[in-house]
């Protein structure tokens, strides 16, 4: 895949013409091309890149002149913090609301929840983000509009979650990023609940006289968590990869914004390095999803062993 990106970005254009000062003449331009190693044939560039990559060096950013990996890792903390907060919000809000709407599908409040969840993913993230700034920062003045707040270090993790100022900066972007996922979790939970409640094991459990809390909390939840975990596993990666828009609007110094800027400026080393990191992250997430999956659903595990 690195091949695809490497060559793909090469087809798009040449960063040099955008980077050089307009005062530069052809000689300057040629020198920059040489400096960045772009005068070599693309295959040779790729071989050099692979050689470097094998030694853990993914090249230097054209724009920042720094190691691409270092650049990304410096931006990673802010993005992870944002994504985890968004994921937490999605689960904390989505599952209870979805359960409620699934258990009492005919109540008015359930209908309101479902309709709002449709609204939640009907509007583009950037539009909602701007509206949030408009309402909560500009009009009400409750929360800061942009940027990341103060950070503090706790248990070796530096994050803005640990300061009040940091949290206040985090709320809007995290909510913006979580919005679509909240809707998704509500819908998945509700769908699962409605289906689950009609299944035999729930009926038996109820027939046995178990309390509703236990039936819902243990038997039902365990079963509907399967699709939710699958989807959220996928969505966490996309939260990170697609935080691009939220980070752009809220001026959040994360790697999503770094990516889109690198793409727009054809900073190939950064884009390639970013993708390799994301791929690695995804493989890990999927492994985790599979593990959680088999814990939640012994049938999967048994089947695998039975082969």
């Amino acid at each position: 895949m690195s091949v695809l990106v490497f060559f793909g970005l090469n087809i798009i254009g040449d960063p040099v013409y955008m980077l050089v000062s307009p005062d530069a003449d052809q000689e300057d331009i040629d020198r920059v091309i040489r400096n960045l190693g772009l005068d070599r044939p693309i295959l040779e560039q790729y071989v050099l890149f692979v050689k470097g990559a094998l030694q853990g060096d993914l090249g230097n950013s054209f724009i920042f002149g720094e190691s691409a990996l270092g650049l990304i890792s410096r931006h990673m903390g802010a993005t992870l913090e944002l994504a985890f907060t968004a994921l937490f919000l999605a689960i904390a809000i989505g599952i209870p609301l979805g359960l409620y709407a699934g258990l009492y599908p005919n109540r008015m409040s359930s209908r309101v929840i479902m309709t709002s969840s449709i609204l939640g993913f009907s509007l583009p993230t950037f539009w909602v983000g701007l509206m949030m700034i408009l309402i909560f920062s500009v009009q009400l003045g409750w929360l800061p509009s942009t940027g990341r707040g103060d950070t503090a270090t706790f248990l070796g993790i530096t994050s803005s979650i640990f300061t009040l100022n940091g949290l206040s900066h985090l709320i809007l972007p995290a909510a913006n990023l979580a919005l679509l996922k909240v809707s998704l979790v509500i819908r998945l939970t509700r769908a699962g609940t409605r289906e689950g409640m009609q299944q035999d094991y729930i009926k038996f459990a109820r027939a046995k006289g178990l309390s509703t809390t236990r039936v819902v909390g243990v038997h039902l939840l365990k079963n509907i968590l399967i699709p939710i975990v699958t989807v959220l596993g996928l969505e966490f990666g996309s939260l990170i990869a697609f935080s691009v828009v939220t980070e752009t609007i809220f001026a959040w110094p994360g790697m999503g914004r770094l990516l889109i800027e690198s793409i727009l400026q054809l900073d190939r080393p950064v884009v390639v390095a970013y993708l390799m990191i994301i791929v690695a992250l995804f493989v890990v997430i999927n492994l985790l999803v599979d593990v959680v999956y088999s814990i939640l659903d012994p049938r999967v595990r048994l089947k695998e062993q039975g082969k």
Partner: peptide, 11 residues
């Protein structure tokens, strides 16, 4: 599929 999903749509 994993590979695919790791590909940002903007790119």
């Amino acid at each position: 599929v994993d590979l695919q999903l790791s590909f940002p749509s903007a790119l």
